[in-house]
Each structure stands twice: as structure tokens, then as C-alpha cells.
Design a protein around this nucleic acid. Structure first.
Lengths: 174, 174
DNA sequence: GGCAAAAATATGCGAATTCATATTATTCAG
DNA sequence: CTGAATAATATGAATTCGCATATTTTTGCC
């Protein structure tokens, strides 16, 4: 398979990417989630559906927009996911009494049961991860992640690094 | 806008999700990246294209599969992104001399220039984030992220929490 | 050397996701 | 109380993405 000169050792600490915070966040998130996401799919759920189950298990009857922000997805996408989950009998919609523009999403009995089960499994899985870290490392990590998350919520008015002239590079229109 | 009873304060530390490691990773990654990703798109690049530019800036001439893994995306998807970047004159393909199954991707002059610029800007942006954290917090965070990433690379043979019977919930076929 | 198996990339198609906008309901100014 | 402005959700088209598989090249065994 791999011949000698192929072992181009990719030293992740050498270049820019391997020590770039945004890369490390994305890569760690991706790597740590892969296993459990596979498990979720084996249960017949898509990952976004699992996220919604989890959020509703925490607090039932949330609004669509609220849920979308919490579950890190777009509103219009969530609408479609709710359609799908409703057709599977996991959730049902009920429009808010006070403000009928709003749609509140509630777990069905089946949704609540599945959600509770998966939350349990997620916690067990989390324990396994934490067990592999150094003592106290998980707590530090979670704190720092909460800190970053809190700093960069929507609408902090923070702008990225100074922007020079946008560049037109398209050979053909995208 | 928001009436009184609407301020359903979502206490993220109350339920499961707000302290779940995989959620915190995804949420922090998402939140921290939003600004810079917007900047990237203003430059006429898609986020995956930026990731490839960054990876190639670190090490030019990487293989497609290598790059895909590094940039956290699927091989077939990367192939299409490379098509697009090539049509914009940012990269070019060259098949490996020793093994002509392999395609090595190289930056063009324009690609190298744009990559260098964006890497600079990314580093400046990273500094801004780090400046908002407590002293030393970023180093701890990066270390922990590297640790998690290292533990959960593809093929560690780790299985998620014990799996009970898969559940069929579809009302209609997906 | 020739052939089966494996590796690296590309391709086609279907599913997932986003974007712009329509629809419905509420608020608020006058 | 009427209409303009805003808010919440839904809808449809377009894009992006992922899975299965085809294609090309290399490897290894006989």
C-alpha cells in the first residue's frame, strides 16, 4: 500500500492549520461526534432530529426560531425537519395561544421516550470521552467552550480582521 | 416585539444540552467561526475553498484524499471543490509521477497570494478571540482540543454507548 | 507477464441544506 | 380602527453535499 516516500508525515503542529483555533474547534467537534452520530443514524434518526429531540427534552414546547438557533440550524431547515419528525410521530406542532404566528413544538410520548433514551446514551458516551481525558481537563474544556460560545453569540457586533478589497476571481459566474 | 411572558429565559446550564460536551464543541465552533466565514464569503470564496487554500498554504501538492481528511470533508465533495477552484484559477491538478492514480493539488500564484492573505487575516482574527479570553485560557483550550481530536481520529475502534434495539419509527419510507 | 485485489479519484444521482420570498399574524402610529 | 411595519413560519427553487459505484492505476501472487 504505502510505499516509503508516501509517508509524508503531516505534522499538524508545523503549519498554520494545526494550531489554528477555529480549525481545532471544528476538527475536535467533528472527531468527537462521529461515533455518536453514527449511533443516532442507526436508530433511524438524522443528526438534526436528534438535536431537536435533545433540545425538546430539556424544554418542551419551544418555538421554531428559538429551537433553530439552539440547535445551530436554519429556520427553514428546521421547519422541514419538524415536518419529518411529525410524520414519524415524534413531535407535534401547536400554535401558540397568545400569538398565533408562533408554532410551538411538543414531544409526543414516543418522542419523549426516544429522546430520554438517547440523552441517557449520550451522557454515557460523554462519560467515556471524559474518562479518556486527564482529570479536570473536561471541566476546563467545557468552561472554555462556554466562554467562547458566550463571547460570539449572534449580534455581538464583532467584525473580523480588517478587510481589504474584495477580490473577484470567478472565471465564470458562480 | 417581545412581550413579558415571552422572555422564556433559556438557561443553558439548566438542562442536558447546555452542559453536553458534544454540543459545546459544535456550538463554540459554530459561534467562533461565523464572523470569519462571512468574511471568507465576502472574498468570493466558499468556506470549504478557504479550508483547502489554508491546507495547501501549509503544504502544497497534497493528495486529494489526504486533503479531504484534513479539511474535514468527503473525498467526492473535495473533487468537486477542486474543480471549482481550478476553474477560478486558484489551484491546479497534477498527477503524481510515481503513482498516477494520485492527483496532487497545487496552488497557482493567485491561489498562493489569496491563501497567504486569508491566513494572515485568520491569524489576526484568532488573536482577537484569544484576547477576549483569560490569559492562558486559549492555550489550555487548544491543548484540550488537540487531545480530543487525537483520541477520536478515524479508526480508534471506539464504539458508542451500549446500543439497544434499533427502533423503526418511520410512518412512511424516508 | 497476467490476473485478482486494492488504492485513488471521478461521476451520477438522490438527499440535505440554504436562499429568497410568500403567507399569516401582531404591533403600533395616527 | 385602519394601514404600514415587523415578526414567525412555510414554501419552492437552487445549491451543496454524501453515498454508491465506475474508472484508472498499481500491487502482489502464481
Amino acid at each position: 500500500m504505502a510505499k516509503d516516500e508516501d509517508r509524508i508525515e503531516i505534522d499538524r503542529n508545523a503549519g498554520f492549520v494545526g494550531d489554528y483555533l477555529l480549525y481545532l474547534l471544528a476538527a475536535a467537534s467533528d472527531a468527537a461526534s462521529t461515533d455518536f452520530h453514527a449511533h443516532v443514524r442507526e436508530q433511524g434518526l438524522r443528526v438534526p432530529e436528534w438535536r431537536i429531540l435533545a433540545c425538546l427534552s430539556d424544554e418542551d414546547g419551544q418555538m421554531v426560531t428559538q429551537l433553530a438557533q439552539l440547535a445551530l440550524m436554519e429556520q427553514s431547515h428546521l421547519t422541514k425537519i419538524i415536518d419529518h419528525m411529525a410524520s414519524k410521530g415524534l413531535v407535534k406542532r401547536r400554535s401558540d395561544e397568545r400569538d398565533r404566528r408562533r408554532v410551538r413544538v411538543f414531544l409526543t410520548a414516543a418522542g419523549r421516550a426516544l429522546g430520554a433514551r438517547l440523552v441517557d446514551e449520550a451522557q454515557a458516551h460523554e462519560e467515556e470521552i471524559i474518562a479518556r481525558l486527564r482529570p479536570g481537563e473536561a471541566a476546563l474544556l467545557k468552561n472554555a467552550l462556554k466562554h467562547v460560545h458566550a463571547l460570539y453569540r449572534a449580534g455581538s457586533g464583532i467584525t473580523p480582521a480588517p478587510v481589504r478589497e474584495p477580490v473577484k476571481l470567478e472565471t465564470r459566474p458562480t
